[in-house]
């Protein structure tokens, strides 16, 4: 028996003027699945993520969350329905401390809390990602990986159904990268549903159940991670025609 579908894209398309950034892309994400959205630079992965989170409106196609259409909804409603995300370039709230940053997700996210309950919950999430001791720190003092952790905690604290991670592991040094991969592994073991835009191949191999490969806005492959990564067409897309 397969788990129910959580997110489903059908013919999702995004045009910027004459440029088709995402071209008729369809795929499904099932519950407890970690899906890797991979492809060369400029292939439309992040744009696809932006369509799901509502950062950009789709030009065409349908996106559903547990069967309900979310295409065209504003980002805030999609967030409230249970899709939360991190950003490609970390975006924390500079005037607030770590705890308040995480509370932002707990107060306004999918499951909404307020007051002492929100604070307790945010602290729990911080504990889980190993930052409880820095709850009162200002975000300006954090190391790079810690800023990424806080952003992740903010996304988690609304008890989201689906987590969208936009190159969450990018820019980390080797030690941090191990820590980062362990952290996502932990989330995966909890049975979370995650869509991951990523370049780090080690991370993709060890984290993703399935992968969707994009190139020039189109989906060129989909399947289990090992199959996809040995697909000659995928290798060609990554390395260029001459090397294939």
């Amino acid at each position: 028996m397969t788990a129910p579908t959580v997110i489903s894209l059908r013919g999702a398309t995004k045009q910027f003027g004459g440029l088709v950034a995402v071209d008729n892309v369809s795929f499904d994400v099932r519950e407890h699945q970690v899906l890797g959205l991979i492809g060369p630079n400029g292939s439309g992965k992040s744009t696809t993520l932006n369509l799901i989170s509502g950062a950009l409106p789709a030009t065409d196609g349908d996106i559903t969350l547990r069967g309900g259409t979310i295409t065209g909804l504003p980002a805030r409603e999609i967030a409230r329905k249970g899709v939360s995300r991190t950003f490609q370039l970390v975006r924390l709230l500079p005037s607030m401390n770590v705890l308040e940053n995480v509370m932002a997700g707990a107060v306004f996210g999918h499951r909404r809390r307020w007051g002492a309950s929100a604070e307790r919950h945010a602290l729990q999430v911080l504990e889980k990602i190993g930052m409880a001791d820095k709850a009162k720190a200002s975000v300006g003092q954090l190391t790079y990986i810690d800023t990424k952790r806080v952003e992740l905690a903010r996304a988690l604290s609304g008890e989201t159904e689906v987590l969208l991670l936009d190159e969450w592991l990018a820019g980390l040094n080797p030690t941090e990268l191990t820590e980062g991969i362990d952290l996502i592994h932990q989330l995966r073991d909890e049975g979370r549903t995650i869509i991951l835009v990523e370049h780090v191949m080690d991370a993709i191999r060890s984290l993703c159940d399935t992968c969707v490969v994009m190139s020039s806005g189109k989906k060129i492959a989909e399947g289990s991670t090992d199959d996809v990564l040995s697909d000659p067409e995928v290798i060609r897309a990554y390395l260029g025609d001459d090397d294939a």
Binding site: P74, A79, S84, L93, S95, G109, G158
Partner: peptide, 18 residues
């Protein structure tokens, strides 16, 4: 609280559901 978040970063505010 929502307004403080908006003042810091409106995109983030939208994406946390405000």
């Amino acid at each position: 609280f929502a307004l403080r978040i908006i003042g810091d970063d409106e995109d983030v505010a939208r994406h946390v559901g405000i």
